[in-house]
Design a protein around this nucleic acid. Structure first.
Length: 865
RNA sequence: GCCGAAGUGGCGGAAUGGCAGACGCGGCGGACUUAAAAUCCGCUGCCCGUAAGGGCGUCAGGGUUCGAGUCCCUGCUUCGGCACCA
């Protein structure tokens, strides 16, 4: 770890007692000693335990996405959790019954990788990590309700994944299919489409480029909800996330059109090739047709003399990596298969080609190629000398104008040309009419296609939820009967050399009898994607140990949906999409009534390493909070992370400035315990700020405190934690100006201190609790937690100012400021302003043209010519 | 290429169309100290000026407005998402 100079100096401040003659008078702020004491006290009195059955207060379900138990909490975890905790405490002070649970996303590959290198069983590794992280979470002072904890690798959790699987199977929401799937060669596992990232198509976890494999796998029917997932009714989610999901789902409206294969010497014709297009208006411009190399009709339609070329092209395509195949930079390739199709609108024979730019997995795996109006088709036609025929023209363009580029965009007033009886109609209307006309002959129908695929949930790894299915030679695929759940993961699987799933080499697990016929059968060894675990865990938090159902319906009814969820934007199209799917699926199997899991969502940013890269052990840029906590205490770290900048922004970690926050807490400590202090270096001697007397000072103190209360309340509510801290610092700075003066310790002062502590309590829970308890003790009252106090009310009268300063501009340039009574009228104000020397000078003898009083009298602008 | 977010002092950042740079870091100066640290107080966007004061200034260029960091248009840069999706 790098140690900067300011860190070293601060170290001394924290560890070395002040060497002043009166060091004994006021006790030093010593967070490292006091914080654990309060954490223990809170646990003892059950401060964080939520009574889920309490009906006297409004419920508030606050969820922070649960972590993967990677071993150590790093500063990023603090960044994620701390503001959420502060917000929860803030809501609690408003009288809400806040439920803030935590758990662990405990299945997954890192545990396996650790197992392979160190020989420790994934369960042991995971549980050890969880133990560490529990301790670290407690050191943050987070108000998690540990009674609600969920650990997904425990049978009492994952058996319900299996239960859901069976229900989904019954409901037709789960199915098994052979498909070309994405395979990560490093992790030896298939991935869902969402888990393949970036232009290089790499594994989301390890960054290895994926390859395609044809495998029979289990899917959840996500596409069933495609349209519903596009609606974000009644939920308050950040626009960027909604956009990402919308784009991911990729709904596109168009038409499916049937091309019939023409008879020739080699085949009788009559096969139908369906294409999907969003541009039926360009149908007359279709001069050829392209099938994906994997298209099922390819083999059948290929002419004998083309067979060698076609086979070789198909073979080549399959060998290519996804990167090569999908690169847009690459020149188009393809071969004709020696058969023609008939364009249904004009009876023209168009040649059929295969080319890898047509994807088998989208639409129908075949396209009509309209080179005049599609860039890709244009490029292809150019390269292979295929005809290009314009069928849409912008107003004024001749029908036969030569084309240098595809004309794919839409222009106002464009019309169809070269399109038989549709020529002359607008492109829009023409397209509709062409589809109608073809539809009447059963040659077309309006269709919606989606980019999103069903969710591939099979994983060839042992550390996950076993998929509860048995394969029997006689009965085929047999679901494990519900009463036989859970299918337990064995504790003793061992990793072999080749990276294959060890469950395959575990006879006791593998060999079973068929639940139907009793004959020997084979158990499914694939496990579920860990995103299945994270798709419903917040329902389980409400009753983590219920053993006759996945959820406690009445509690879910009362507590769901989650009122506020906080988590990273990196989950936009994975976790957050799957979670929405799961909620809808759970609704459709009759388990719950909600349509959406999270009413409000906030995406916090990500803390990066000081090198600007994502924090990870392999990069060696992970920041260990334990050391920082040992030096400054949890409150300073909490506050510093909130103070860094807007929470949704994140950024590279830098401890520079942490000393400033520590200093602030020390000032709070001093203000609360030593209002009169005259230690060496403290302000000279009881001098009120210039121009103030005792009563104006008292008013000023109250005004500042109540104004701060107003803005700080808004900051918490709006998740503006950085300005919340700044405003509290301002309050402390103001109070410091009155420290040691006659008004220090007065009731007004005391009220300000009280408000300051209450406002700071959610963010810095330990120091405020400590100072609060001392206040109570001093007043001879029994202890009660500051975190059970009510959020204070703003005294608007106190907050109001009796004078205000009005900036004065001349032609938009600031020339003067005048201090006037708060209630002054515009006419009077103008008189005051025009009498000012500086304004006279700025006007230079000219008469004001207009005088503008900005909204609420905040500024005056004098306009002269 | 398409979609989205963002560009403000040396740094992190603040600013319902109304005083740009709050708050903090760093820097400079002062008090305290034998001294240093800590603490407290003050100054700290850039340029000219001893000063009073003036000029410039929120990625660049246009525009709307009495007034633009904020709204509109064009472009540049960075980050995130998607990427031959018909």
């Amino acid at each position: 770890m790098t140690t900067t100079r300011d860190q070293r100096t601060d170290t001394r401040s924290a560890e070395t007692p002040a060497r002043s003659p009166r060091a004994d008078r006021v006790e030093r702020y010593d967070p490292v000693a006091t914080e654990p004491r309060w954490q223990a006290k809170w646990a003892e009195v059950g401060l964080h335990h939520t009574d889920l059955h309490d009906k006297t207060r409004p419920k508030f379900y606050l969820l922070t996405m649960y972590p993967y138990p990677s071993g150590d909490l790093h500063i990023g975890h603090w960044y994620i959790v701390t503001p959420t905790d502060a917000f929860g405490r803030f809501r609690r002070m408003h009288g809400d019954n806040v439920f803030l649970p935590i758990g662990f996303d405990a299945f997954g590959l890192p545990a396996e990788n650790a197992a392979i290198t160190s020989g420790v069983h994934p369960r042991e590794w995971t549980m050890r990590n969880i133990e560490t992280m529990r301790r670290q979470f407690r050191s943050m002072g987070a108000t998690f309700d540990w009674d609600a904890e969920v650990v997904t690798s425990e049978p009492e959790y994952y058996r319900w994944n299996q239960w859901f699987f069976l229900k989904f199977l019954e409901a037709g929401l789960a199915y098994r299919a052979m498909a070309p799937v994405d395979w990560c060669p490093k992790d030896q596992v298939v991935l869902a489409r969402e888990q393949v990232e970036g232009p290089n198509r790499v594994c989301w976890r390890c960054g290895t480029p994926v390859i395609k494999r044809d495998l029979e796998q289990w899917f959840f029917r996500l596409t069933k909800y495609a349209d519903e997932l596009l609606a974000f009714d009644g939920i308050d989610w950040p626009e960027p996330i909604r956009l990402m999901q919308t784009n991911w789902i990729g709904r596109s409206e168009g038409a499916e059109i049937v091309f019939t294969v023409a008879p020739d010497d080699h085949q009788p014709g009559g096969d139908e090739v369906r294409v999907f297009t969003t541009r039926p208006d360009t149908l007359f411009g279709a001069t050829f047709m392209v099938l994906a190399p994997e298209h099922p009709l390819v083999a059948r339609l290929t002419a004998p003399d083309r067979k060698a070329a076609v086979d070789s092209y198909v073979y080549q395509t399959r060998r290519e990596t996804e990167i090569e195949r999908l690169s847009t930079e690459r020149e188009k390739t393809g071969v004709p298969i020696g058969a023609d199709a008939i364009n249904p609108v004009n009876g023209e024979r168009v040649p059929i080609w295969i080319a890898d730019y047509v994807l088998a997995s989208y639409g129908t795996g075949a396209i009509m190629a309209v080179p005049a109006h599609d860039e890709r088709d244009f490029e292809f036609a150019r390269k292979f000398g295929l005809p290009i025929r314009r069928v849409v023209a912008a107003p004024g363009t001749p029908d036969d104008a030569p084309m240098d580029d595809a004309y794919a965009a839409h222009t106002e007033g464009e019309i169809l040309v070269n399109s038989g009886r549709f020529s002359g109609t607008s492109a829009d209307e023409g397209g509709r009419k062409i589809v109608e006309w073809l539809a009447s002959q059963d040659k077309a129908r309006p269709t919606v296609t989606y980019r999103v695929r069903d969710w591939l949930i099979s994983r060839q790894r042992p550390w996950g939820t076993p998929i509860p299915v048995i394969y029997c030679d006689r009965d085929g695929i047999v679901p494990v009967p519900e009463e036989q759940l859970p299918v337990l993961l064995p504790d003793d699987f061992v990793y072999g050399a080749k990276g294959e799933n060890p469950l395959l080499n575990h006879p006791e697990f593998l060999n079973v009898t068929c639940p139907r016929c009793g004959e020997p059968a084979r158990r499914e060894t694939d496990t579920m994607d860990t995103f299945v675990d994270s798709s419903w865990y917040w329902y389980r938090y409400l009753s983590p140990h219920t053993n006759d159902a996945p959820i406690d319906k009445p509690l879910v009814e009362r507590w769901c949906p989650v009122d506020q969820c906080t988590g990273g934007a990196e989950h936009a199209v994975m976790h957050l999409l799957y979670s929405r799917f799961f909620t809808k699926a759970m609704r459709d199997i009759g388990l719950i009534h909600e349509d959406e899991p999270f009413r409000r969502l906030f995406n916090q940013g990500q803390i990066l390493g000081s090198d600007g890269e994502r924090m990870s052990k392999s990069r060696g840029n992970v920041q260990d909070p334990d050391a920082l906590v040992g030096r400054y205490g949890a409150d300073t770290i909490r506050l510093f992370l909130m103070f860094m900048g807007p929470w949704d922004q994140g950024g590279p970690w830098s401890p520079t400035g942490i000393g400033g926050v520590f200093r602030f807490l020390n000032r709070v400590w001093t203000l609360a315990l030593d209002p009169h202090g005259q230690e060496p270096g403290d302000p000279a001697s009881g001098q009120l700020p210039e121009g103030e007397d005792e009563s104006s000072a008292r008013r000023a103190i109250r005004a500042t405190a109540h104004r701060t209360l107003k803005v700080v309340s808004g900051d918490y509510t709006g998740f503006r934690f950085n300005t919340m801290v700044a405003h509290l610092m301002e309050l402390a700075n103001t109070l410091f100006r009155y420290r040691g003066t006659v008004v220090a310790g007065d009731p007004e002062w005391d009220e300000a201190i009280r408000l300051m502590l209450l406002m700071l309590a959610p963010a810095a829970p330990h120091i405020t609790e400590e100072l609060w308890s001392r206040r109570l003790a001093e007043a001879g009252e029994d202890w009660s937690s500051i975190h059970s106090e009510e959020w204070p009310m703003v005294d608007e009268t106190a907050a109001a100012a009796d004078t205000r300063e009005v900036p004065v501009q001349v032609n938009g340039k600031l020339r003067d400021r005048v201090v006037v009574p708060a209630g002054i009228g515009e006419i009077e104000l103008e008189q005051v302003i025009l009498a000012r020397d500086r304004i006279h000078a700025a006007l230079g003898g000219r008469e004001p043209d207009r005088v503008i009083h900005a909204s609420g009298g905040r500024l005056v602008n004098i306009v002269v010519r």
